[in-house]
Design a protein around this nucleic acid. Structure first.
Lengths: 154, 154
DNA sequence: CAGAAATAATCAGTGCCCTGAGTAATTGAG
DNA sequence: CTCAATTACTCAGGGCACTGATTATTTCTG
């Protein structure tokens, strides 16, 4: 009797959107490489030699998850992990040739998939879609970090 | 060099949006009950006595995931599973009093959380936000089902 | 320089999410 | 009525996502 309408719950919509994307990715892009894995490859194409933590920051994955994703990519020979000689805590990450090839191939397919995925929206609507989601995500993320830029002096 | 901009990739945005929601849910709604679990409770408030598969359909969870979620809710005493006397394959699900109380309590908190989550958007923008996400999700979901309504005769 | 604080990575534990294979019960066709 | 197809659920297996605790290394401070 007191049930709510989940279609007005952004969390539920976000989950459904991600599921829909996951399924389309599997059929149109790759069954081997997942979307988060592609994001990691992409980050390392942009900035080779990043350490694990920073890659996680770039693609929005926490320390544990990024460790798993990287271990899978490494096991498949798509990237190399080497200890940073400057800082023995870090591992520096770099794509292998195979990793670079995979990224290039998936970039094309991903673009096609995004077109299909966004096809129900007009060009203007797509812009709004990106803008709204990004604003909500950024704001929510900001709620986590206790707004530390308030360090006036010290 | 050939890296792409992930902020124009709906899949990446969807993942970030869901993460942001997950974190806010944990701080503002509950650390015990997750958003998918709440969705199940909500479905059973609307339609008590549903079977497991149908609940999954209502909230958008596949057979395996819904089984896990229900088993957790059942373990916590929030719902009861009883064999359907009419059909021995089914389990009929029904909230316990505790489950109903939990749903009522979380409904209030969820509404508050949604307000905070959507605060960066104006009222009109919120409407557009729901509409766009829903259209994209529905369309993608439609790509899965091979449009079987095309059964002309047989 | 030595001990304390901070940092990068790992591990254990929980939960969500999907597929493919298997089991038990029901339904449908011959 | 009997056997095959269908259906509800379970199980095994892979991957994503987070927290809290631990380990190794570096950095900061007295």
């Amino acid at each position: 009797m007191a049930a709510v309408d989940l279609t007005t719950h952004p969390g539920h919509l976000a989950r459904r959107l991600q599921q829909a994307h996951y399924l389309l990715w599997n059929t149109m892009v790759s069954e081997q490489i997942t979307s988060p894995q592609f994001a990691v490859l992409n980050a390392l194409v942009a900035e080779p030699g990043l350490d694990q933590r920073t890659v996680g920051e770039r693609v929005g994955l926490d320390r544990s998850t990024i460790a798993e994703v990287i271990s899978r990519l490494s096991r498949r020979g798509l990237l190399d992990k080497v200890r940073d000689p400057q800082d023995g805590r870090r591992f520096l990450l770099r794509l292998t040739d195979e990793g670079t090839r995979t990224h290039r191939k998936l970039t094309v397919r991903t673009a096609r998939m995004n077109q299909v995925f966004l096809a129900p929206l007009s060009a203007e609507e797509q812009t709004v879609f990106f803008d709204l989601i990004q604003r909500v995500s950024d704001a929510a993320e900001g709620l986590r970090n206790p707004t530390e830029p308030l360090t006036t002096q010290c």
